[in-house]
Design a binder for these strands. Sequence first.
DNA 1: TTGTAGGCGTTATCAT
DNA 2: ATGATAACGCCTACAA
Lengths: 341, 341
Amino acid sequence: MSAQITDVAKLAGVSISTVSRVISNNGYPVKPAVREKVLAAAKELNYVPNISAKTLRQQKRNGIALIVRSISDPYFNNIERGVTEAAFKNGLIASVFTSMQDTEFEMKYYSVILEQQYAGVIIGGGAYGGSKTNKRLKNIVRQLQNQGCKVIALAPQGFDVPTISVDNEDVGFKATKQLISLGHSQIAYIGGYPDHLVDVGRFNGYQKALQEAGIDYNPLIVKMSEYSIQGGYDNCKALLEQKGEFSAVYCSNDHIAYGVKQCLRDNGIRVPKDISIMGTGGFYDDVGFFFDANLSTIKFPFYSLGERAVNMIVSDEKLENDYKEIMATEVILKKTTAKKG
Amino acid sequence: MSAQITDVAKLAGVSISTVSRVISNNGYPVKPAVREKVLAAAKELNYVPNISAKTLRQQKRNGIALIVRSISDPYFNNIERGVTEAAFKNGLIASVFTSMQDTEFEMKYYSVILEQQYAGVIIGGGAYGGSKTNKRLKNIVRQLQNQGCKVIALAPQGFDVPTISVDNEDVGFKATKQLISLGHSQIAYIGGYPDHLVDVGRFNGYQKALQEAGIDYNPLIVKMSEYSIQGGYDNCKALLEQKGEFSAVYCSNDHIAYGVKQCLRDNGIRVPKDISIMGTGGFYDDVGFFFDANLSTIKFPFYSLGERAVNMIVSDEKLENDYKEIMATEVILKKTTAKKG
DNA sequence: TTGTAGGCGTTATCAT
DNA sequence: ATGATAACGCCTACAA
């Protein structure tokens, strides 16, 4: 249908090898005059190399897949940017796939990624599933690895894959400690899925910080449901209704924190004067169309996380499945935290 | 590296043609017993067909690209779902590319899409550029079309491409008329980029509705800047400070409307009791982690828009560049509109 | 510095 | 119903 390398060669009056060498620009010596001729011919014919043929011949993989939970969850915003930009720098092309938190979808994606011979897949936000679904996922992930596709997770997945992530226990610990250092001792915890590994880690950190400060753990002011604004709102409301005493809340995710903030506001409670809130993630600040939530939070290095994952895929270091890499987080204090007054 | 068709053939004791027929499952008759043997062999070897070879041989395109402005803009949430799910149903695979409102990025994407021989590209949200960048975009889009890649826009782009969209003038008209029918006559307009075709349409509709109702157009209560919550907030604040009189606001986008809502609230103005707000799009309701904004709005058929675009790409009807298709919108009344009191 | 030719893993055509 | 073989478009030894 469209022009191919032979057409360009014919028009330029050279062999296809010469054209190939000019087009792929691989450093192989070609006389400048010839190069010009080839380029001119290619331009005239609107020649575009066929990447299937190239891939097939080179046995090289050139795609990076990023799996996210939902395309519009701001949590993934900077992860995606890091992945996309790093991929480009390495001559690869990143595509985003949305799992919708649905294992069926995720499985389908993996099988496509398998066929498409991607260089790697970055699991930014996989489906949330129990141990049965995990087994199926684990299987297909192993298959991907067998095919030479590198798999990198950006959070613990419940089975061994090379993982780059934050230290979730440390995150929970730092956040809670921050609240303690502001004089709070009645600190509620509102988390996401109770059996999500990520949440378990943050919750452990929360408990550890309390313990270290000699504060008794009070299960009455602990709530968990899901990582959403609504979840935060509802759980906060429940806390208020049961009249649990607390002057601060640690939320294991900024969506939750934002919901809590709204709930408190709707109930005439001043933030941070009456109650302080610490969130987790820091992703609200990165999204332009969001109103700045001004959350005090533990900021994750989302961009770097994505960037690093791509670089690991690109490099030829062999990755063991038990490989774990931790990236640093940062305490950010904005307008939802204050000294206990 | 990994198993290929010859390996499967050898293990199953048949020819590669037979394997191909079984694997591609193309209806060609194969004896059941043989089929079983092949399937077993393929499974044992973890055989996965190489899609590059397949694509090369079949000259078939199997990718759909969706260009969005930002991965986390909820505006694209249901468009993406529609595209992804429709693509799957048609045996295609959709990838999302984020333009970041950056023409350079967008150009790079198009050139990759060109090489990758995508079946089609859906321009959900292109870069926002002036006429010079439009020229470059137009060129590469023409090139895509020449290569046999179908291009569909989901909003006017400033140059001719087959477009499926809502009728933006009608949208602005209906929204304004709705406010008028609630008894409002001093209706402010807060829009996005003043020279964005989409906004021009909505603004025209706004003016037309006023005119039809015999209301004088008042340029003092019209503001435009950008499609963001912050933009809505700031423009609303400016309106309040200049003491322009208005009892309702039509916002040409829900981000803006949400910002306006926040601004009014922060200034002690009750919505909708004191001031009514109509938004545009209805995308806040579709995103789980969002707190329901409860905006009265003109709801767009995002999912169908994406779905229809895919179906147009898949079908072999030839698309003229001046093809335009309009999809219906719906007035949704929630908690930001009330009769003028 | 340039050209020739073989092969990457499929599918499809043509025999059998 | 099955098998042999020639493409698909490109890259890359190897030859010149």
